[in-house]
């Protein structure tokens, strides 16, 4: 026993190194590999406040751009108001219509930190549990899809960007209606890769790519980008398609968190199917 202690003591540098690496390894496994089971992360309020303070400064520098985007968005919403439409039909209808159930709820939030240069990128929003944000809600902007919420604290939330090794989004080609899977290969933050589109589908450059809505997270038909290039490897039966994102991820200021109000019901259905 004494020899063992002496041995450990003599080589403590090595053993301390191994111990610290093991600690780091467990932290990585618990917090990175299973993204959704994040225990301690930067969403906690103290760090959120640091980011918010810093962001207030950088936001000041980009006010004009943010204003322009907001006013464009305002204009679009004005266009959607009932006053902007003329009523053509004369059929009677009930105001309290039960034919329509609200399926998606939008909550506006501000981005307080963002990155595009890492292999795994995250955003932080200034809204959290208190404002109704929950993990697995979709995050979109007026131009397209941003990512999904992975962790919320009382006042802040972390979003896994589309620009992340762990991000897979179910998308479809708007014209062909074929469904594939979109991920990011880590090279260029303006380009994503779309796979699983079978080779018999006719694609052309400029085709629109939208969300499929199959994941129960994103609403169907949200704009993602356009086809920039595509190819089939020899002997492959699926395309590899380069998609140019519609959103410039390096300048996102205001986003909407989208809650699928029927998600639990859909997941319940999936679970029942598996159980059978």
């Amino acid at each position: 026993m004494r020899n063992l202690i002496a041995f450990l003591w003599k080589n403590y540098f090595f053993f301390l190194f191994v111990a610290l690496e093991v600690v780091a390894y467990f932290l990585i496994i618990n917090n990175n590999f299973y993204q959704r089971r994040v225990i301690i992360n930067s969403t906690n309020d103290m760090l959120g406040n640091v980011f918010e303070g810093f962001d207030n400064f950088s936001e000041y520098l980009s006010l004009s751009k943010a204003n322009r985007i907001l006013s464009e968005e305002n204009a679009r919403f004005y266009n959607m108001r009932p006053e902007s439409f003329i009523k053509n039909d004369t059929t009677t209808f009930f105001i309290d219509d039960t034919l329509y159930n609200r399926r998606f709820k939008y909550i506006a939030a501000k981005v307080i930190s963002n990155s595009v240069t890492r292999r795994n990128n995250y955003l932080k929003l200034d809204k959290g549990r208190n404002h109704g944000l929950k993990p697995d809600m979709a995050v979109i902007t007026s131009d397209g899809v941003v990512g999904q919420i992975i962790e919320v604290s009382d006042n802040f939330s972390s979003v896994m960007s589309i620009l992340n090794n762990n991000s897979r989004i179910s998308v479809k080609l708007k014209n062909a209606n074929h469904v594939g899977s979109l991920f990011w290969d880590g090279t260029d933050y303006r380009m994503g890769t779309l796979v699983d589109i079978p080779s018999h589908v006719l694609i052309s450059k400029g085709d629109t790519v939208v969300t499929s809505g199959f994941s129960h997270i994103f609403p169907e038909g949200k704009y993602i980008g356009i086809v920039e290039d595509f190819n089939i490897g020899t002997g492959d039966s699926f395309y590899s398609i380069g998609v140019k994102f519609s959103v410039d991820y390096n300048k996102i200021y205001y986003v909407y968190a989208v809650e699928n109000l029927l998600r639990d019901e859909l997941l319940q259905l999936d679970e029942n199917k598996i159980a059978e």
């Binding site: 610290l20 780091a24 917090n31 992360n41 795994n120």
Partner: peptide, 25 residues
């Protein structure tokens, strides 16, 4: 280790910078 871990806290990558820094040390 502490330096790496502190950076990790801010980048949502808990453990990665800590492991790299400890190895460097």
């Amino acid at each position: 280790f502490l330096m790496g871990l502190s950076v990790d806290f801010f980048t949502n990558s808990l453990g990665i910078n800590a492991a790299a820094s400890t190895f460097t040390a």
